[in-house]
């Protein structure tokens, strides 16, 4: 059972800029074990910058990030063993077959995830024989979901996961998240879809112009949600 007092993600005063351009400013955030945390905000607000800083793709200017009690810089590789990440673009190697990509991700982790991968492919209807370059965005996203979930990580980080997925697959995707979270996992969900935040998230935060504000509740109405995207909101 998840321990809702343990912080899985702990970000303290994170600042990251791209030269003269703003990235994120003084972001602090805590996400507890077992949470499905909604991360919303307009394009360019800094959601992806925060996520990419957490995963070590970006070198942070100041602040600290602790994931699963480990330092994101010093223990970077160890953290990634327990994280399942799905990027918004979901690109792989075009000439590889789906089955090869899924096995490759497991092999780099040094794990045999074939049974879990088979189950996930079955539920998400993934055609493992096709080459990546033959897949639509939605089908690439399904492959990305399998790669992120097959090793049963403690923390999921999804960056706009449902774009391109058909409604049935979106439903199955959230069913899977709920199942893994019930087993003790935690999920950070960056999304633009209000219904996903309302329906699935336990907590949420909004990013605007590089700054983060916690929401009192993820249950918000359309007007409030859209006001977050308004420059003057």
């Amino acid at each position: 059972m998840p321990d809702s007092n343990t912080n899985v993600i702990e970000i303290r005063n994170l600042t990251k800029s791209y030269g003269k351009n703003r990235g994120v400013i003084d972001v602090s955030l805590e996400i507890k074990e077992g949470d499905i945390f909604g991360f919303i905000g307009p394009n360019g607000a800094g959601k992806s910058t925060t996520i990419r800083s957490m995963l070590g793709f970006l070198k942070i200017d100041s602040g600290s990030i602790s994931i699963l009690g480990m330092d994101s810089v010093k223990d970077h590789t160890e953290i990634l063993k327990h994280v399942g990440y799905m990027p918004s673009e979901a690109w792989f190697y075009g000439d590889m077959r789906v089955s090869e990509v899924i096995k490759y991700a497991a092999d780099v982790r040094g794990l045999d995830c074939s049974e879990e991968a088979r189950k996930l492919c079955e539920r998400l209807k993934v055609d493992t024989h096709k080459k990546i370059k033959e897949l639509s965005l939605g089908n690439r996203k399904k492959v990305s979901i399998v790669c992120a979930m097959q090793h049963k990580p403690k923390l999921f980080i999804f960056d706009e996961p449902t774009g391109g997925l058909d409604p049935l697959m979106q439903k199955r995707f959230f069913e899977l998240i709920n199942e893994y979270v019930a087993e003790g996992a935690t999920c950070l969900l960056s999304t633009h879809v209000l219904s996903e935040v309302n329906k699935y998230c336990k907590n949420a935060a909004i990013m605007r112009e590089g700054r983060l504000t916690m929401l009192d509740s993820p249950k918000i109405d359309d007007e409030t949600f859209l006001s977050f995207y308004d420059d003057e909101g």
Partner: peptide, 14 residues
């Protein structure tokens, strides 16, 4: 360039 860097570097390898 082929946008596979995030996939590769999200795996536990330095």
């Amino acid at each position: 360039e082929q946008h596979s860097a995030e996939f590769l570097l999200s795996l536990p390898v330095s």
